[in-house]
Design a protein around this nucleic acid. Sequence first.
DNA 1: CTGAAAGCGCTTACAG
DNA 2: CTGAAAGCGCTTACAG
Lengths: 361, 361
Amino acid sequence: MSGKAPTIIDVAREAGVSIKTVSRVMNQEPGVNSETRGQVLSVITRLNYRPQQSARSLAGARSFLIGLLYYDPSADYIAGVQQGATLRCREAGYHLVVESLDDDAPDIGHQVDRVVSALRPDGMILTPPLSDNAQVLAALRAARTPCVLVSPAQETEGVASVRMDDQRAAQEITGLLLALGHRRIGFVKGAADQAASKLRYQGYLRALKAAQVPLDKDLIVPGDFKFDSGVAAATQLLARKARPTAIFASNDDMALGVLTTAQRMGIAVPAELSIAGFDDSPAAVLVWPRLTTVHQPKALMARTAVELLVAASRGDDPGQLHRVLPHQVVVRESTGAAPVARESTGAAPGSALPAKPGPGR
Amino acid sequence: MSGKAPTIIDVAREAGVSIKTVSRVMNQEPGVNSETRGQVLSVITRLNYRPQQSARSLAGARSFLIGLLYYDPSADYIAGVQQGATLRCREAGYHLVVESLDDDAPDIGHQVDRVVSALRPDGMILTPPLSDNAQVLAALRAARTPCVLVSPAQETEGVASVRMDDQRAAQEITGLLLALGHRRIGFVKGAADQAASKLRYQGYLRALKAAQVPLDKDLIVPGDFKFDSGVAAATQLLARKARPTAIFASNDDMALGVLTTAQRMGIAVPAELSIAGFDDSPAAVLVWPRLTTVHQPKALMARTAVELLVAASRGDDPGQLHRVLPHQVVVRESTGAAPVARESTGAAPGSALPAKPGPGR
DNA sequence: CTGAAAGCGCTTACAG
DNA sequence: CTGAAAGCGCTTACAG
């Protein structure tokens, strides 16, 4: 508890070795007598010595810093990613620096450049839509900073990436609705400029095809991932004569718009209409019935991204560069068996209450 | 675009000055001939020179790093805080390092210590509940690392803090309900161990007193800030003979539980029951009617925290150490005029639809 | 298996 | 107003 923090010199003196040996122990380099190593380790513990990041960074090739770059993410997305990244960083002795960028800014390359040249991070994690931003990627490449793309639109040769299988997840959740007996399943598309939109749509199509359910194009409506577009989509879909018995929205925000609209129209969920979303957002469990949806492995993707970067900076073999992580279909109360087969005749009777109020939890 | 990034030596040579002069210009120190300064600046721009954080940190007293420490925050909270912090950091030439800690861990002091001794950040921002964690504060004090507490339970002499006025906000939103003619206003408390719970409750009490509305203790029910406790609270409150015409929940998650419960009981919101929350969470606008609530100045609190830290690290006068930032009451569709004065007789007729469906947006 | 020397790119006193 | 020297705390070659 003296005034100054101990340095590598203090440790070396106490342990009766050179600073080089202490350095070797700290970096877990091979070729140190195990007795010497134990001796040094005990002094390190006793003095509570911690190497200083700035000195290691200046002298060596590593900064022990990993950057997380994002642009206008949903709160839930960034929180999930960050949780996984910070925990894995701590385990590996790294620290996470976060930077919020403007995807539309013409000087975004410079913004990246600034961070990289100031911090010299050992790696960068890019979340969508930055994972598809050519300027960002070019700036990183020029600075020779390794990066991992989270859910990029497409995998790039030699650039690491982590993602989940959006198409398969969408196929699974559509399959769930089909298994419940639904045949008229509405689909609300995501924003046209996002890669996930297309994948989720394809998953929906595949599931129908696999179940040999003919495609009804009128059941497919546009959306932009926002609540209001879910409201608009539901308004359109539920006004049909032969209205769908289920609606799968490309994300939870839109699914909540569908849910609200159904409730306002007096359509019981899930008795008369099943609703499924995608994302497992916090709001999915803040409504009743709670949403059936897909849980994206955000924290695991981030952990994996950190691992790939740490391996690369250590010179270890990172293994497979393109990782596809397992998702989870979360079945809650917004989906149920299709109504018994009598064609809906338009306006349905009944209240907004579910047939059987479920338990409060 | 050569292989190596330019150093201060390259700049000095090009500008025909000593590295010390370049250093002075970079740090905006006074006492440099303005012509010399301009000359140096132009070389810096031309070479695209950026000082390296690790070298500055090692040689000097500043690291240009600010830490953000949190424990299990809501996604929305951390995202809001971070947005404000990263932007202000960028403007000031700082970078934000985030670390997720475990508030219950017995070695949390060590966890903090590890970050501080490795990174030597110029300051730390602590969010609740860490802003009230004695071990964290002690570790920071021992390391002489300046910190700013976000919304601490109580202000500490000499320790900077930023917060909003929870009590006044709660008083305002209760006042809004009173102004709408409500007299039986239910209140759902927050978790007993959080400082905000008490403040919001006091605000509710004050508003009633100011309006000379007698306190009915049966209208006050416990809660823990979670959705389910809102459901439980509403179930209890709405079963009363003289049921409340409005319910103010201490946060949005609970308010959503109240909303769902009302809808399932066939009580129209806001025609028969007004509902108000607190936080302005993302979910507040993902339901219908959208929630009337209080918007907490998360980003502004974080910006201010960074400013206090940057000023301190520059040796500038930070000014007032305890900042109270303005909040905003956001009036949406979940609140309306109190039903005309006929005593509720228990079970109310009507559907879950609002009297007049509002606009879709 | 271990160590002495040089150097990473800046800032801090100290001179002039 | 400007600069030459020392040094921050490590790692990198290089020896032995």
